[in-house]
Computed example of a mutant assay.
Amino acid sequence: MLTVARAGTTGLAAVALAAAMLLSPGLTSSARAADSAPCTPDRNYPGTFLCPIWGSNVNLRSAPEPQAPVIATAPDGGFLRVLCQVKGGRATYNGYWHTWWVKTQAMGMAPSAYMSEIFLAGGGNDEPDSGLPNC
């Protein structure tokens, strides 16, 4: 099970905004093409993308599977830098579910990590992010 711990004032505001976006009629599963907050190319780091995320202390895992070991947590601040997206195991959280995962870049001694797309802002259950290439 994925967890999100310690949601401060900024985290709560991001969760409320993301929940409102995910629950609005234009973003439900009946509107599959609607991704209101797609990942965008990062101009400062070619080949990477900035993805708006909600929550704080979101688990980053060693593989795109919900039971894979947690190796880090996503930084607070609303964005995660990623390389691509990949299909993986089905993750669930508070009524949401996803089989798409984003892959982060390896940094120094830290390996690449994976985060469930549940925590990307916009889109719906099991919809790949419209701004990311597949790995």
Rank of each mutant, 00 (worst) to 15 (best):
E127R: 15
G123N: 02
A14N: 11
E127D: 12
P66G: 06
A5L: 14
S29Y: 10
L2V: 09
Q105H: 10
K87T: 06
A91M: 02
P111C: 05
C135K: 03
W101M: 02
A18W: 00
E127I: 02
A106D: 04
M115K: 06
G47E: 07
L17T: 11
P111Y: 08
Q67Y: 13
A34H: 08
T73V: 15
M109N: 11
S130K: 14
A113P: 06
T104D: 08
G88D: 08
L23W: 04
G55D: 04
N94C: 03
A121E: 12
S29A: 13
G124M: 04
P111L: 03
I53W: 10
A19S: 14
C135P: 07
E65D: 15
Y114R: 07
A106S: 14
S24C: 14
S130L: 11
L50Y: 07
W54S: 00
M107E: 15
A106Y: 05
R90T: 11
T48A: 04
G131K: 00
G124K: 08
A121T: 13
G89L: 03
W101C: 01
L12H: 09
I118G: 00
V82T: 07
T3G: 13
K87N: 01
A91E: 01
K87C: 02
F79H: 09
T3S: 14
T92N: 10
V4R: 13
L80W: 04
S62A: 15
S62G: 12
V58I: 15
I53L: 06
S29H: 10
W100F: 09
T99Y: 01
T73A: 06
L83Y: 07
N94Y: 09
L22R: 14
T99K: 09
G11M: 05
P66Y: 09
T28Q: 13
G26T: 06
R43M: 07
G55R: 04
G77E: 06
M115C: 06
S130I: 05
L27R: 14
A33R: 08
A74G: 02
L132A: 05
I71K: 03
S56A: 13
L12E: 12
V4Q: 13
A72T: 03
L27C: 13
A20C: 04
N44A: 15
L120V: 00
P75F: 07
A5Q: 11
M107G: 08
F79S: 02
Q85V: 02
Y114I: 01
A19G: 10
A33L: 10
A31D: 06
D76F: 10
P38A: 05
M107C: 05
N44P: 00
T9Q: 10
S24G: 11
S36A: 14
S24N: 12
A113V: 05
L132P: 12
T10K: 11
A33G: 04
G89P: 01
H98A: 01
S30T: 12
G124A: 12
S112W: 03
F119K: 04
V70E: 12
T9M: 11
G88F: 09
T92V: 08
C39Y: 03
V58K: 00
A31E: 03
E117D: 09
P64C: 05
A68I: 08
V4I: 14
L60V: 10
A72L: 04
C39W: 04
T92C: 00
R61T: 03
W100C: 01
A13P: 01
